[in-house]
């Protein structure tokens, strides 16, 4: 446990000045700022909207691209960046000759990637809520303050986070094994496109393909149970979510044995 905590802190120390870390902050901030500007300039057109619809427009604009593109690509990038820091500096050999168990080094690295994805999702929630409320302050005709969807947003982003775990584990392993930039990113990109196609076409076994999970998670997020009552309820655990979690655990464990067997060049 001590080795894990030390390695985790070291991961933060190493990456705190890199894009890999700051992407978790910059990506949600930039997107929310752009949306803010869009809503600010088009405020006249939007003024007639009901507060709930305003929120759905605001948050939905991000969520539309989040499942199909933003989240998978971000996860692919993060998995690459936490491993690339070692490939680049040729530091695997020194990392694995430290008096820390290989398991701790591997697990800490994986959980650091996981932490970055979670941080990014949390910041999306935070910035969406903050910029929505800021809009109602600077443009009082936009009645963002008359409706609250913090809970739903938290649930949606938590669901997205869980649905991305399968991709994270696979990409983490690929990026660890391949020092090359193009291979893991290329594979990830092709699989993401395949995933989107599967999700769009509602293929019945799409929920088994990890790269389709975020898209399917978004498509299945609204609970049908209370639709009639015009209440927005989020269904977090639709079937692709447990599949994503199981795949991520299996690949994570399998990856550990590959790392254990593998020679460090």
């Amino acid at each position: 446990m001590k080795g894990f905590l030390l390695s985790f802190r070291s991961e933060f120390f190493k990456s705190r000045k890199t894009l890999g870390f700051w992407a978790a902050v910059i990506l949600p901030l930039m997107i929310c700022v752009l949306l803010f500007i869009g809503f600010y300039t088009k405020s006249e057109k939007l003024a007639s909207m009901a507060p709930m619809m305003l929120w759905l427009q605001f948050a939905g604009a991000i969520l539309k691209v989040m499942g199909s593109l933003l989240l998978p690509m971000y996860v692919i990038f993060i998995a690459y960046s936490v491993n690339n820091i070692e490939h680049n500096a040729d530091t695997w050999k020194s990392l694995f000759s430290l008096p820390i168990s290989r398991c701790a080094v591997y697990t800490a690295k994986y959980f650091y990637a996981l932490f970055l994805v979670l941080l990014c999702m949390c910041l999306f929630v935070l910035f969406t809520i903050s910029f929505g409320n800021l809009l109602s302050l600077v443009k009082p005709q936009l009645r963002f303050d008359n409706y609250h969807m913090e809970k739903q947003l938290l649930q949606v982003y938590f669901k997205l986070f869980l649905s991305s775990l399968g991709i994270l584990s696979i990409q983490f392993l690929l990026s660890l094994l391949w020092a090359n930039f193009l291979k893991p990113i290329g594979v990830g990109f092709i699989c993401t496109i395949a995933g989107v196609i599967l999700a769009i076409n509602n293929w019945e076994y799409g929920y088994l393909f990890p790269y389709a999970h975020p898209s399917i998670a978004i498509a299945n997020m609204v609970s049908r149970a209370n639709e009639a009552a015009n209440k927005l309820e989020i269904d977090v655990f639709t079937k692709e979510v447990p599949v994503s979690i199981v795949i991520s655990i299996l690949v994570f464990i399998g990856g550990y044995f590959i790392v254990l067997k593998r020679s460090i060049r």
Partner: peptide, 15 residues
Amino acid sequence: LSQIGALIEQPAIYA
């Protein structure tokens, strides 16, 4: 390993 210090090939340094 806690009693060994090592330098293998080029030093492993974060640029």
